[in-house]
Amino acid sequence: MKLKLGDHSNALQYHSRVMREQFGIRTTGEQYVIALAGNPNVGKSTVFNALTGLHQHTGNWPGKTVDNAQGNYSYRNKSFLLVDLPGTYSLLAHSVEEEIARDFICFGQPDATIVVLDATSLERNLNLALQVMEISSKVIICVNLIDEARKKKLSINFDELEKELGVPIVPTAARNREGLADLQKAVYSMVVEKKKTWPKQIPYSEEVEQAISALLPKVEELSLARVVNPKWLALRLLDSDVSFIETISRYSAIQPLRTVASQRQGGEFTL
């Protein structure tokens, strides 16, 4: 099937589309891709189901035996494709699930990433949110299960949290459909209206910061900035095992290559 691209057809658009196809994501026409991340047991699939209803499609991540669920929803005449990432506690370990979530947020170039947090255990859940914010600035934090938090008599200062983290915070109780409209609105402002964010960067201890700054010039020489955040990359060079670095290499090698290839095709590409 040949698709003629609309006014969005510039190299970058292609490039993200080609990248997404690596992850088995196929968008139709002008559709925004939204990734959904979160710890296990935070009601992430409830959020997913509540937003997409019956417009779902389930399968596997390409080449992996891990479930991949995608679903559509429309908001103000725009279409959004929600990609449910595997539930993970972090993006740093090496289980297949975390690899998929990390690689998609890093290299799948979603238009936005929603991180679902459990309102009753923010302390642990914020770990993942901060890690995602290190990779991408297009992050929306959905603090789910606020009904449970209310029952536990926890009151959360969402304004303060938003001011501190610099990204939109949306409280929800997805089981009762509470806050879902706000979530859709936040996604819309981010991807359609291009509302800016100032994601908080994790304040590392001096020792870590020093190690990063020592390495940063070398990383910046590689000019991978468009693909990954150099500071994040420097840190991963310092704390990860070699297979992770190989993945990054592989994807950063694919990216420019594909961009060049799609430019040659001149406005059309084959699905």
């Binding site: 590689l222 000019s223 670095i245 190989e246 290499s249 950063s252 290559l257 060049v260």
Partner: peptide
């Protein structure tokens, strides 16, 4: 547009 980056430098 960035140039092709062989995987070596990162490793």
């Amino acid at each position: 547009m960035s140039t092709l980056n062989p995987p070596d430098p990162l490793l």
